Computed example of a mutant assay.
Amino acid sequence: MHTVSARQRAGLASVVVTVAALESGIASAHSASRSWTYPPACCHGDTVTGECGKIPASTVTPRPDGYVIILRPGDHQKVTHQNRYFVPYDVVIPSGDDNFHICLHPTEEDENCFFAPADTM
C-alpha cells in the first residue's frame, strides 16, 4: 500500500486541476474518458500496460476511515490475482466522471492513485 504525504496530495491536486484545464491533455498522461485525463504522477504515462483504469463500483466498500477495494482478474487490466487495497479518505482524488478508477504502480499490489466520484467522497 502506498502512503501519500500532505505535500504529495497537494501536488496531485494541483496536477488534477491543471490537467482538467487543458483541452488536449498532456503527452505523458493517458485518458480516463473523453472528459478527463489521469495525472502523469499517477499513471507514469504507461498506456501499454495500463496502470490506470476504471473499476466496478461493486469492488469498492466505504468504511469509516476510507475505502476498501478488492480487485479480482477482470476488474482492472493489470490484476492477475485477487488484491485488497485500503485508501484513506484524505488521499482520494475526485474522478472526472461518475466512476471509480485506480492506478496500480509499480506492481498490481501497489495502489498509486485512487479516484472516486465526487458524490461518494
Rank of each mutant, 00 (worst) to 15 (best):
P39Y: 02
S28G: 13
E111M: 15
P56E: 11
V16M: 11
D90A: 05
T107K: 13
H30L: 01
D110I: 04
G11Y: 00
G25A: 14
Q82C: 03
V16A: 13
P64S: 13
H76C: 07
V48Q: 04
S28F: 06
P56A: 15
I69C: 08
L104W: 04
P62I: 10
Q77T: 07
E23W: 11
G53C: 01
I26L: 14
A41Q: 04
A13M: 13
I69L: 14
C52P: 05
I102S: 06
I69S: 11
G96H: 08
T18F: 12
A6S: 13
A10G: 08
V17R: 14
T47C: 02
S14R: 14
N112L: 11
V92S: 07
A21L: 12
Y67F: 15
I69F: 11
V16F: 09
S33L: 05
T59F: 10
G11R: 00
V60A: 10
L104I: 05
V92L: 09
R72F: 04
Q8C: 08
A10K: 15
I70M: 09
H101T: 08
M1E: 12
W36I: 04
S31V: 01
Q82F: 02
D75V: 03
A10D: 13
D46L: 00
C103Q: 07
S33Q: 03
T37P: 02
E109L: 03
G45C: 02
V91I: 15
Q77C: 07
A41Y: 02
V87A: 13
H44Q: 06
T47R: 00
V79F: 00
I55L: 04
R84P: 03
Q82V: 08
